[in-house]
Write a protein that binds this DNA or RNA. Structure first.
Lengths: 341, 341
DNA sequence: AGTTACAATGAAAGCGCTTTCATTTCTTCG
DNA sequence: CGAAGAAATGAAAGCGCTTTCATTGTAACT
């Protein structure tokens, strides 16, 4: 039997390597590699011996070395704007659950709604050679797009819809959401219409869809908020105060998120507005608290977790070589009519 | 000048490597490596030439190879129970911000409050040889502890306090939180006391601190919730209904999170309870909505983001070889008295 | 008994970097 | 102008795995 100890000097108590295991188990390194990755190819008796040594030594394979050699890292990267804003947190959870159960690990990047940071993150992430990458939205800097397509790996864009994704997209049309909300309000008929909220690309799409649907019917008021995305409870409250102060007549408001809507609602509640007769508020996201506001918030519901799940499945299929993954995977949305519209 | 093309065959359009850059720039691979990692060691003229080639080719270094060779991955792993539950999301944001600005990347693991999953995650994460690891809480399976100490890397445990951390801990005493809340309620004096909420290790500590402080003074009622951590709005509402149904007299309630408290509050509100005279509710976390409930929620405030920031700084210092990092870094907490207690 | 096939194992090369140590090329100064 | 020291660069080895191809052992069939 050959001696597999390639080390020039005695092991200095440093981390155990595959070669160490091989030596201790009296087999070659390849066999240990197979015992770990493709145990079916190893004779049960040998396998058992190797496993015993692994357990005894507490060996943890080095996936850097493994990834370098095999060109597969079992790493999936995801870039989202934020994780504190509820909206993406559940998508991440869905993503992660699906990835972990397939033996993959999630590498997370937070872009803070900043395309420049998205670019830097993309570079940093690509340097780790993930097997796939997930991005939020469909608007990226051209350098980002170039780098991504040059890396030739599966890409999934989430939370938006497009006929021409970089690779595959999982999401829905924000403009359609805006239109749907407009129609919901139109049926009831209000004297004035307004939209308040964030200015990230997707919120803007929703606003534009809303405004366009009302074009020729009503002017949409857009209170100015001196802030950047994402917007807050406070923003909603201030905007609503502004709206209520500067005009008469019944009012239908579309907020860019449930948080903003909640703020708007608080102001309306404080002023004793009659909802939804005199004032209607529609949020976006159907956050946990939405059913519990006073009155309960009418909002647009999206299965946020499902976006993560479907994104994970798509990317895993692509990694597995499945070329039949659809370019655009649509996610459902609908209005949950509660007390505010 | 030597020819640095080591490849036996012509490059097949695959990813550009450091050797390719070296060849195109007419220098050796080491020089390119230095141009990237320690540009100060390279003559400005050479540097410029190399940078030009890198830009032109869109070269992205392979950090797997780099990490394998240098034994530094610039990767920090963090394991938290969940990211959808608000409580940890901001910690992650703080962590990430600090790490990114130091050139590190965050590898995220979600344990779902399950020690077994924490163990698996630890193994999977260690296999990627992070430069440091951050864990939530101080209770881990003994296999996890063994694996961690065996890996000999900087460890930071967050969101709890202990005199004997694995390495360093950043957090606070949950028992002390429970005591503080008990004292806050005692000052006002209620006929009955109750605690409702989750059963994760930290929530249990808070409950025990609360119960112990009231020992000999009052029995603490603990409504049964047929659920696991984390608990929800619904749990809070049901528990409050139970409490209100089965007893008389004024009542002081400590909830394991603001979400639970919000639910409890909704039930109390619906029944027209007089707060805080007849009924007191104290939450935990000071979530965004806490100031905006009706009445506004009294709760325990912790700077969640700060935990992340401090954890990141500690681990970065450790990586830099600083041995003066304190074993226990305390995080402040205090009661924000609003309308419910 | 003699192929043939398959299962189990091994040898060697190499993934793309960084490290260490050696060499070359400048400066600087007596 | 030549020696000494510093600055800039390079050669070679190797990080810890997986891959490919070769070899050996074992069973199955004629």
């Amino acid at each position: 039997m050959t001696d597999y100890d390639k080390s020039k000097h005695i092991r200095n108590g440093g981390p155990v390597t595959l070669a160490d295991i091989a030596k201790l188990a009296g087999v070659s390194p390849v066999t240990v590699s197979r015992a770990i990755n493709t145990p079916a190819l190893v004779k049960p008796h040998t396998l058992e011996a190797i496993e015993k040594v692994i357990a005894r030594t507490g060996y943890v394979p080095n996936l850097l070395a493994g990834g370098l050699a095999s060109r597969r890292t079992r790493l999936i990267a995801a870039i989202v704007p934020s994780v504190a804003s509820t909206i993406f947190a559940e998508t991440i959870e869905g993503l992660n659950a699906e990835l972990v159960s397939a033996g993959y690990q999630l590498l997370l990047g937070l872009s803070g709604y900043d395309p420049g940071r998205e670019l830097e993150l993309t570079r940093a992430i690509l340097a780790r050679r993930p097997d796939g990458i997930i991005l939020t939205g469909i608007t990226h800097m051209k350098e980002t797009r170039a780098m991504l397509t040059g890396a030739s790996l599966p890409i999934v864009e989430i939370w938006d819809s497009t006929p021409s994704p970089l690779d595959t997209a999982v999401g829905f049309s924000h403009a359609a959401v805006g239109r749907l909300v407009a129609e919901h309000l139109l049926i009831r008929g209000y004297d004035r219409y307004a939209q308040v909220g964030a200015n990230d690309p997707r919120a803007v799409q929703r606003r534009d869809g809303f405004v366009n649907r009302l074009k020729g019917i009503a002017e949409v008021e857009l209170p100015e908020l001196d802030m950047n995305s994402p917007s807050t409870f406070r923003d909603g409250r201030m905007a609503m105060a502004q709206l209520l102060d500067r005009g008469e007549g019944s009012l239908g408001v579309f907020c860019s998120s449930d948080v903003v809507a909640h703020g708007a609602l608080a102001e309306a509640h404080a002023r004793g507005c009659n909802m939804p007769g005199e004032l209607a508020i529609i949020g976006f996201g159907d956050f946990d608290f939405a059913p519990h506001t006073h009155p309960p918030l009418t909002t647009v519901r999206i299965d946020r977790r499902d976006i993560g799940t479907k994104a994970a499945r798509s990317i895993l299929r692509k990694i597995a070589g499945d070329t039949s993954v659809e370019a655009m995977i649509d996610i459902d949305f609908h209005i949950v009519a509660r007390g505010t519209a």
